[in-house]
Structures are given as C-alpha cells and as structure tokens.
Design a protein around this nucleic acid. Structure first.
Lengths: 343, 343
DNA sequence: CGTTAGCACTCGCAAGCAATGAGTGCTAAC
DNA sequence: GTTAGCACTCATTGCTTGCGAGTGCTAACG
C-alpha cells in the first residue's frame, strides 16, 4: 500500500515529531543525512501521504504532523525494538533481583519504575479477582460489638473489614461459623464467594445458629469487600510536562479521569483474546478526555493465565518504540518473578 | 492599630478579591451600598493600608490586592463564622449519621466531603501511631515457606505483612511464639513495640525455640511495618480550576509536593501546644511551592488527645470564613464519632 | 478638619498592522 | 523520476496606538 520511500518518510516524520512536538517540514527532512532527496520530492510524497490520511496539516504553510492513522501505521510497523540503553535495562534487572516479598510492594514499585523511566504516567492493575481464590478466612473479635474479618487470598493478599457482631451471638457460635466458612469456601475464586455463600453455606448455617439471618447479612457484606482498590498510579503529574497539555483545562479532564478507579479498571482490563502489547492511540480510547493520549498496555501472568495489566499513558506523540520495549521487559520480568514465588 | 474604617475597607477588599480574583479598585468599593464614602476617600485609606503593608498593587494603575499580612489580619479578625448554609450543614450531618464502622472509610469519606464542599484540595491525616496500641497479633501460614503476619490496632486498623518462615520452624513453634507475643505486647503503643520486643520478649523466646535468631529478625521486620501510609488526599485536581494556577509549571510543583507523603505528614503534624484551627498563609508554609497557597488545618481527637489532622489546601485567595466553619464542624463531628465508637 | 470633586498621570491590555520566515503547491527544466 | 525556482499562505513577532481602569494630588467645600 505504501512505497518503501513513503514508509521511510512517514517514519522520519513520526520520529521527529515525537522528539520536537512541532510540525515537521520538508526541508528539515531533506537535510537528514540518511535521506537523499530534495525538499521538493519530500513535499510530493508528503502530499500523497496526507491524501492517504497518514499525515495532517495544522494549517496551510505549516509542516505535517502524523494523524492517528499515521501513528497506527508507525506502531504496527515498528521493527526491532532497540532503543533501550543497557544501563536502563540494568535498572530494571537490579530492581527485580531485589528481594521483594509483598505483592503489593512489587506492583507499586513497578509503577514507579515505569513512570520514572518513561516520564509518562503509569497505571498498574493488580492481580485480578478472577484468578485469585480464598486461602483462609478469619474473624477476630475486637470487643463485644465489633470484629475484624480477615480474608487471605491465594496470592498472599490480605483484605480486612470491620463488622458489627449481631447482638446475642456468642464466641463459640462465631467460631463454628468461621470453621464452616473455611471448610466450604477455601479455594473458591473470590468472585464466586458470594454465590457460594448462598448455595453451599446458607443451609448449613441455619442448623448451627439461631441468628441465621443477621449473620448472613454480615457475611454477605464481608465477602462483598471491594477487591478493586488495586489500581496503582505513578507519575500522574508527568502529564503536565508535556507541551500539548500546557492548557490546564484539558489536563484537568485527564487527571480527573485518572482519579476514577472504576474507569481505569475498565480501561485496563484486556479485551478477551488479546495478549501481548496493546496500543490504543487517541480516539481509540473510548474516553473523550484521552483523545490526545495513547495508552500502551501489557499483561503479566502466572502459569499462562494473565493476572494483571501494566500500562503507560502519554500523549499521542509518545515514544512508542522505547515505551514498548520497556513494557515488554517489565511485563516479562513480573511474570517470571511471580512464577518463582508461587512455585 | 487600624481605624474602624480601615478595617472595614480591608475586609471589603479581601472579600471582593476572594470572589473575583481580580484587583479591587476604589470605585467598586465606593459603589457598595454599605460603604458611604467616595472613591477619593477610599483611595486615601487604601494608600495608608498599603503603606502599612496590608495591601499590594500588582502594578500602578491597578486596584489593590491583599498582601499576606492583609490576609493574616483578615483571618485573625474573622468574627462570627456564618457563611455556611443549613443545607450544607445537613450534608455533613447526614454523612456522620451514616453507619460507618471502619476508621479508614470514615477518613477517606471525610476527605471527599471536604474537597467537594470547598472545591479545594483536602488532606487528612489518619490516627497517629502515638495513640494507638496493639490489640492482637496473628500469624497465618500461607504455605511451607511464607506466612502473613497480621496486626490489629486498638483503633481497629489492620496491617499485614508477608514474611518468610525460617526453615525448620514447626507450626507448633510458631503458635507458641504468637501466644508469647500476644501475652507480652497487647496494649503496648505501636511505636514502643520494637523496643519491647527486645526488652521483654527476646529472652523468653530463647527458651521456647532453637531458631531464636532467625525468628527475632522476622519479628523485628514485622513490627517495623510502616504505619505511615495514612495520608488521604481528595480533590487534588481542584487546584487546576483556580485562575491563579492556570500556569501549568506552578501547579506541577504543587501536585508533585502533594504526592510526597512524608512531606505532607510533616506539614500536617500539629506544632506542639497548638490546637483548634490553624491557618498558614502563603510563605508561612515553609515550602516554596506553596508560596501562593494557604493551608487550613484542624485536629480531631479522642479523650482530649489529638488523634489526627484534617486540612484544606487552596490558593491564598481562599474563602477563609467558609472553609474554617466547615473544618470546625467536621473536626468536631469526627471527634464525637470517634468517642462514641470507643466508649 | 475630614471629605469630596476634579484632573493629570500611569500603565496594562487589546486592536491593528507590517515585516518575517517557515513551509507549501505548482510548473518547468534537468 | 527528480529537482530548482517561484509565487503564495499564514502563524508568529514586534510595534504602535488608543482605551480605560485606576491612582495620587490638590483645591474646594461643609
């Protein structure tokens, strides 16, 4: 569809624009040592590329900038992802060599590394509910009226919730309930807990205690605990350093959106069947606030099943090659780290 | 020091500037129905006020704006904190009437209410370590090599940490250790835990187990767990809506600072001996990034001892009266909520 | 003597305008 | 097919000008 020369020119334009954030003119392209054509020739090709929809002109008499389609082509044809210095690779490697034994810490630190290395905003999604099951359930009384319910998951995460003890329920009664839950619900995936509570536990519970209904309500609320505050952000203010976001209003929309955990989760949840590194350019993100942003995501996994997602959000004018290499490395390293842990 | 009329004029100027964010001229003051003087008279007074350091002129031939000293005077002489609508009061009251039984949730929600009602940024400091003690300690084995240590505090907070089990330690040994810790350390303030571990527990531990040293290292790291990730932010992007921060560079510094938890903690920790509502205007905050911001803080307490701090960060041109009323109410309500809980 | 009217003066700001220059499209020549 | 040349476009810059909001000062007024 595109001639070799057109591809080359498109590449140069995207690269240049990523660097400078300014429209690229024919003259500056022609002056590059690896381009052997005069400005006029370049101009002809650029006109063609614009007609094909790969380039845009902010206004007549300005240079060209890549269109979304142009970025898309560029991204789809990035060849060998060089563009990452050995020193940087080393940063990553030494990080993962460190002894980190809390999942949450690993994720958090990974987010920081990502945003620092790229100068964009990083969004990490923790291990997902779907692949995590209950390992242990516990209830610790605090005083006569309240207790802490503790849920330990198969990935070692611990969630807790303070609950009110229904009046009249004795300690031994509570113990029985806890034992019942552990025998019935261990190894059940988290997202199935609530349905299992009703299908398997409820009847038996009725036999154990007279406070059947109150207890069921409490247990329901415990198992309901949101397993979704597991979105980690880092480098949000990096957005502000990008020249395209010097307009405060635009950036506010973006930052506001970054504050909405549920939205982020939806955005970062991989579409079924897709794996590897995903790039969503500009309006391909279905949020209007991200119309001028690109989101690059990758998944990390355990035993072939994807556990979570790492993502980088930046302007459409993003250093795709570089970011994609970094993501590739980090997602792989996360995967191996996890498999070492749980083997 | 100031005449009645000067005070009145200063008040009008501050009020006006808070509303409009634009320098206030003599004419507009004179036109207010409650001001019975001509622009010329006002001008004379304004010249005096400027000489005294209460007002500033951005440039000749512009109106006046309050200086830091002017704000300070204004704040110190705010009289009846009216300025809060019954409907708003109701919002707060119904919020605190809701059944909230997790400390963390209360704090988080309070942060949201504060930022929503004021349209500024709210910073909340959770209950401090100093007034919290250990209620319960627990160790849950995950598999042969790792376990989750769980610490429940007297305020109902639960912290957990994954630790490696020293090889060779049996389950019964672990249980003994846990029992020992509970008998020795319950009701000890969190910040004393580590010293008590060595002074009271260590010797006895040596008699119980042959893995004395390894276990001590593990326990040390467990009790070390940072109790400091308890700064809650809400409405950070509200900063962006203020006209004085339409310059992205300034706002970036502020947002960056807001991301630094330790700095925030330091800033929000009340200076000894001070209580009630504190206002720090402009450069009174010792961070250069906050030179154009004001920080209003209040503490909430339990049984007379202050537990934590709530704060609002906004531009120096802040609705002091309004914000201070809201803070007053919320800090009091937080205090009563807590005392109801723990009584 | 405090207050006010009047007036000259300052100065930021917006509008208008010309010069600049980067960049284009087109045509004709190589 | 490539390139040199040229007329044209248009955002940006710098400059001038006029406007108006606001001041400070002086003199007059009750």
């Amino acid at each position: 569809m595109l001639t070799e020369r057109q591809r080359m020119i498109l590449n140069v334009i995207v690269d240049d624009y990523i660097r400078s954030a300014e429209p690229v003119g024919s003259r500056s392209i022609s002056k590059r040592p690896d381009v052997g054509y005069s400005p006029a020739t370049i101009r002809n090709e650029m006109a063609d590329l614009e007609e094909l929809g790969f380039l845009e002109q902010p206004h007549t008499s300005a240079g060209r900038i890549p269109s979304h389609k142009g970025y898309r082509y560029y991204v789809d044809h990035i060849t060998p992802w060089n563009s990452i210095a050995p020193a940087e690779l080393n940063t990553i490697r030494t990080f993962f060599a460190e002894k980190l034994n809390v999942m949450e810490q690993v994720i958090q630190q990974s987010a920081m590394i990502l945003s620092h290395m790229t100068n964009y905003t990083s969004i990490l999604l923790g291990p997902e509910v779907f692949h995590t099951s209950l390992r242990h359930f516990q209830l610790l009384p605090l005083n006569e009226t309240t207790a802490v319910a503790i849920i330990v998951t198969s990935t070692g995460q611990v969630e807790n919730k303070t609950v009110a003890i229904p009046p009249g329920v004795s300690v031994s009664e509570m113990e029985k309930v806890v034992n019942l839950l552990n025998s019935k619900l261990v190894n059940v995936p988290l997202f199935k807990l609530k349905s299992r509570l009703y299908s398997e536990v409820a009847q038996e519970l009725e036999r154990y205690t007279s406070h059947y209904e109150e207890l069921l309500i409490v247990l329901d609320s415990v198992l309901d605990s949101e397993h979704d505050h597991q979105v980690y952000l880092s480098g949000t203010t990096n957005m502000l350093t990008q020249p395209e976001f010097k307009d405060v209003d635009k950036v506010k929309d973006i930052l506001d959106l970054l504050g909405e955990t549920p939205t982020l989760m939806k955005m970062m949840t991989p579409t079924a069947g897709e794996s590897g590194i995903q790039v969503r350019i500009g309006t391909e993100n279905d949020h209007k606030a991200f119309a001028n942003c690109s989101l690059i995501t990758a998944t990390y996994s355990l035993e072939g099943e994807s556990l979570g997602t790492i993502g980088i959000l930046g302007p459409t004018r993003m250093e795709y090659a570089r970011v994609m290499s970094i993501m590739e490395i980090i997602s792989k390293d996360l995967t191996t780290l996890l498999s070492h842990w749980y083997k």
